[in-house]
Amino acid sequence: MDQSNIMSLPQDDRGGYRQARGTTAAKNRMMTVPVLFKGGTGLIAVCTALFLVAPLVGLCLWCTVQELMEATLSPVLWSALKISFVTSSISTLIVIIFGGVLAFVLARYQFCGKMIIDTLVDLPMVLPPMVTGIALLILFGRNGPVGGWLAEHGMALTFTAIAVVIAQVFVALPFFIRAARAGFESVDRRLETASLLLGASKARTFIKVTVPLVWPTLLAGAILAWARCLGEFGATIVFAGNFQGVTQTMPLAIFSALQDNLGVAIALSIMLLFTSFGLVLLLKFVVGSADVSRP
């Protein structure tokens, strides 16, 4: 029998796949530079990037330093910033915990109606936020089935900070679920089996093996979710209202400012822009350093 033939057979599906994927990735990395700048491709890429950046640069140039200083001193800004960060942080945390569980179930279990749940999970992404707000208002409003019951027990949700969180969780969930699900699906199940065979319990295996391996994906999903929470407007204004100091998040404050003072609105926008940018940049660094599986 020809020995060299035996050697060249694919040794197992996963290993072979991973190897193949690795080499293509390496090849892509090498080929990116020459291919991108050949012909019109480079021009298109530059134009697209410009299109994304130009409005933001314009925004920054429109505003004078004085206006910016003025806006910084405004109490509206600080209360809105505070509400935005507190609510979006809480929302992101809720999204990670509950979305994580659902993502894990969707990634690992086969059950009846999985397709339907799958589609429903993605729905908030394509739903206009205003529609989301109305739907939440109907469910949790004073006359709604859940809201009504809560009102009877002395709890009103609408037009409170809790409503802000509910709206944010609703719109941000699919972003996290999608990422986390892809992460859980990508984990080599044999690593988990190896952990179990070494005597680790299922919970320990999850914490020590599964989570560290999907950590970068989970973090990326969490960033997206957080960004979505920070920018949430439509559902919030319908469901939670626009009350300064209670439910007025940054986007709502910008909306209010826009009605009487464009300068303040622009200044607030710049504030939000930079904080969001800084946040995403910071988390990207964290993700980059957390991705241990790369050499």
Binding site: R190, L191, T193, A194, L196, L197, K202, V209, L213, S293
Partner: peptide, 27 residues
């Protein structure tokens, strides 16, 4: 399987990629 105490060496070894050699063995 977590209670069987069986040593299993996988075909492509299935080492934990996020742990050092020491931590892999100590697992």
């Amino acid at each position: 399987m977590e209670k069987r105490s069986i040593g299993y060496v996988f075909q492509d070894y299935a080492l934990f990629p996020h742990l050092s050699v020491f931590e892999n063995v100590a697992y």
